[in-house]
Structure formats: structure tokens, C-alpha cells
Amino acid sequence: MPDVVAGGLRVLFCGINPSLMTAVTGHHFARPGNRFWPVLHLSGFTPRRLRPDEQEELLSYGCGITNVVARATARADELSAEEFRQGGRILEEKVARLRPEWLAVVGVTAYRTAFGEPKARIGPQERTVGGARVWALPSPSGLNAHWTARTMAEEFGRLREAATPVG
């Protein structure tokens, strides 16, 4: 699954891994029940709701997309802890090369496993990854019923405010 990236982004969103639909379509967060695109708009990152096939437009807003683990699965729980740790190492190298201001890991459990931070919570993290500040976000998967689109948008909005240049 190709990343949507460029050097010097404000925010590099990092999904857990591609869904099978994402792998087939070539578009990140492509499953109809995934709330990433609506939440991105509701939180103010984009002026309108983008479709997955418009993912390249994110670059014009200073945002990009990658994944912790490259392997596509039906569910994230099909991934092993070692795949997450290996993905974390690869991600650290990628972030160091691209130099985004923020790495936003979309799925706190993936962040915990990939970076050995078992007590991490949603929100800004103490550590940096590849020189970027880190924000753990809730997973927008339809399987994450604890978060509504509105409450996710509030958390994404906190990141947007932190990533907005002053002045």
C-alpha cells in the first residue's frame, strides 16, 4: 500500500495496517464503515469531507498517511506483536527521513505495542519518534464503538490545534 507522504508535513497520520479493501482499492481507510475521512473533516483538518480516492489531496493540507504494519488483514487483531514492533522500527526510520512535525498514530493499542509504551493513553505522548512529536488517536474503525465520530473529531481537533502554526 503506497504511503501518501512528502517531506516536512505538519501531521503524518499512521494507521494500524491496511484493510483488505484498502489493499484492493489502493486507498487508505477505504472501508465504508471507517470514520477517518468524516472525522478528518469534522475536526477541521480538511475544508470538506474527502473520499478515500482523493487521499493525495491531503498533502495540500500538510498531512499524509502511512501505516505501522504494511500487511493487509481483515482485522488488526490478526497482527502479531512482533509485526507491530518491526513496524515501529520501520516507522521510526521513515519519520526521521520525512521529518513531519507530528506523528499521529490512529490506534492507541498499535502505538503501545509498536513502541513498547503499555500505559500510553489517547493524546500527546512524552516521547518522540524519529524526531517528531507523537499523538495517539482513537482508531476510526467501525469496530471501535467506544468512540463516536463526534468524540473522535474532538480529539483529532486537539491535535489540529497543536499542529497549527502560531501567527
Rank of each mutant, 00 (worst) to 15 (best):
A23H: 03
A76T: 13
E92P: 04
S43Q: 05
Y61V: 00
A30I: 04
M21G: 01
F115I: 08
R51M: 12
E93S: 14
H146G: 13
L103A: 10
V134Q: 08
A162N: 10
G123W: 08
P165L: 14
A6T: 06
R158E: 13
E82H: 14
W147K: 07
T148H: 12
N67F: 02
R48H: 08
H41P: 00
G8F: 07
T73M: 11
T164Q: 13
E155V: 14
A104V: 04
C14G: 10
G131I: 10
A132P: 00
P140I: 04
G130H: 15
N144Q: 06
G7D: 12
R75D: 09
L137T: 01
P124Y: 06
S80H: 11
R75P: 00
A76C: 05
R158I: 09
L143W: 12
A76R: 10
R75H: 13
S139T: 03
L98A: 07
S80Q: 11
L20H: 03
T22M: 11
T109D: 09
T151N: 13
Q86H: 13
L40K: 04
C14K: 11
L143M: 13
M21L: 10
V105A: 02
V69H: 03
L50N: 08
R97W: 15
R89P: 00
V4M: 07
E155D: 14
E78H: 15
F29C: 07
G88I: 08
V24A: 15
E82T: 15
A120M: 02
P2T: 11
A149L: 07
A76V: 12
L9V: 03
R112S: 02
E82C: 05
M1E: 00
D3I: 01
R89F: 06
V166E: 14
R10G: 03
